[in-house]
Design a protein around this nucleic acid. Structure first.
Lengths: 147, 147
DNA sequence: ATTCATGCAAATCGTTTGCAACCCA
DNA sequence: TGGGTTGCAAACGATTTGCATGAAT
């Protein structure tokens, strides 16, 4: 199968003493080719099975944990016990927020980050050192509104 | 045992054809008496067992779901798969944010709500009708910083 | 007496782990 | 060859459900 732009992934694996396997390449490929779709573990598993019918879900869980540890993907907490995976863009994952449609479940990214001043204010008022934040808006997306 | 200010709770139960039981009164009492402590299900269970040693955890789960359905408590999503319960204050539960200490797990409430202008901006730019939002800051609380 | 609620245990769901077989280096 | 990796099944923790018993009305 054809892989694109996974040279650094292979190198990272080798550098850490890990092995380059079909499963790992296909799982990362599925995440890359579905960027923006905010796949969860089960959805990734289903897509990987298309190329690799015999794959076990344990391998998917283990590979997602590995990719996260290697800072290749981020596990995004959508709240309500839901998670999604997305490609890490140089540690800038916290620099955007999510719009979560309560009707269809669609997740849209809001590229801006508006919270710096608010962080400063809270940080001093509550004497709390802020490392990260998570901001989600729940409601109804434009597609669902028009129905 | 002495219960305070649960008249409306009893009335609501009766109005809906539910029964007033010791378990239900004690569980609500525990949540009321620990407001601000952000108890999860297991912690509520442990506290209820003090007054009612034989209680089953299924009863706690069922009663929490009932209290939520009756708008007496809110289930607050703290992210990272963690939840807490708090007394419903007339649907104003979304008007505050949470500081979550990554070291000790302490949850502090930030009473202010700063997001109205941001909501307006996002709402028009993304054509997304916002019903609710969730904002969490992760970091290190003052107690843990000083250690 | 009737009906709903409870406690218990079994079932379920998503995730993790132990282990023998397997495969990449 | 040898150690990391896989698939499978069992284990796991949190939550839910079925059912007979027990309590509230």
């Amino acid at each position: 199968m054809v892989m694109e732009n996974n040279q650094s992934f292979k190198e990272k694996l080798i550098n850490k003493g890990y092995k380059v396997t079909n499963q790992r390449e296909i799982i990362l490929d599925v995440i890359r080719k579905n960027e923006g779709k905010h796949l969860d573990t089960e959805e990734i598993y289903d897509l990987v099975k298309v190329s690799l019918p015999g794959v076990g879900i344990a391998t998917v869980y283990r590979t997602l944990a590995l990719l996260e540890e290697m800072d290749i993907i981020n596990k995004i907490d959508l709240g309500a016990g839901r998670w999604k995976y997305e490609i890490d863009r140089n540690g800038e994952s916290h620099k955007h927020h999510h719009l979560i449609c309560s009707v269809c479940g669609e997740v849209t990214e809001v590229e801006e980050d508006f919270l710096e001043r608010l962080e400063d204010l809270i940080s001093s008022k509550y004497d709390f050192l802020i490392n990260d934040h998570s901001l989600k808006f729940y409601g109804c997306c434009s597609k669902c509104k028009s129905k």
